[in-house]
Nucleic acid binder design. Structure first.
Lengths: 136, 136
DNA sequence: CATTATAACTTGCAAGTTGCAAGTTACCCT
DNA sequence: AGGGTAACTTGCAACTTGCAAGTTATAATG
């Protein structure tokens, strides 16, 4: 846990991972403009550290060589359960903008939500995740 | 998630919560001497913030009025799944001191581990947690 | 081909946060 | 009364963050 937190214990790392994982962000620009308000120097630093830690990979786009494409590694996608539990906790205990019923459903369907997140990763599907859960 | 991380996104908060939750720490002294090496000013600050956020409570001991007893609130104990997932992730992907089989078992018995953590909280049992899982 | 635009950074600097060591205060123990 | 201990607080240097303004390499446009 201590080791995990040495890497992830800051205000931004997990948010970046979430944005790659469920919002399908791939480029520096997308993170920069995401509205969370991260400074570009910090963003560059976190991307570098996450890459060094083997959580994401960076790859230059063939179509446009200015732009990099960030993706999660296996190690990165394995953080999905942590993020999901953090989301559920926040929704339950803090005032949140997210629709409440949606979260309740996520909680009931943890496994399906995680399966969908992993499928998207495997298939390099980067459409934003709005999980369907056929409840029950 | 962003809201959760505003509170928990630092190097120490989750470690403190873990120590209360599974190691049964109750006093400032215990945290200070835990070996993680947190500075006393930071520790005091984090305890204050966690209390302000409603995650822990502080109560003066009747037996010894110098000493405070920190405990988790409901909101605090609800972080158990986050901590467990973080532990599992760390064990799987980082070199760790923790015995590997123990973690594998935890993973198979998430629900039992969580149930035990919650029982300990309800019953104010502060013996260090070495979870028994009657596998299968 | 020259100009303008864009992506992904880097740099400089002020402001905030952290870590360490050394107090301080209230209480307990003999 | 005197010494010890728990839980802080304070001062200060070092590190980290946030903001604004560059810089570089590539792409798009006239």
């Amino acid at each position: 846990m201590s080791i995990s937190l040495e890497m992830l214990g800051d205000r931004w790392s997990l948010l970046i991972i979430r944005d790659v994982m469920v919002r399908g962000f791939r480029t520096f620009k997308q993170f920069e403009e995401s509205g969370e308000g991260i400074a570009t120097n910090i963003l560059a630093d976190r991307l570098r550290k996450l890459e060094a830690a083997g959580i994401i990979t960076a790859e230059v786009e063939k179509q446009d060589r200015r732009s990099s494409s960030y993706r999660l590694t296996r190690k990165g996608i394995d953080l999905a359960p942590v993020l999901l539990e953090l989301l559920i906790w926040g929704a339950r205990h803090e005032e949140t903008a997210a629709p409440c019923g949606l979260i309740t459903n996520m909680e009931k369907n943890r496994d399906q939500v995680l399966a969908e997140v992993r499928r998207r990763w495997r298939e390099r599907d980067s459409t934003p995740l709005i999980p369907r859960f056929d409840v029950g």
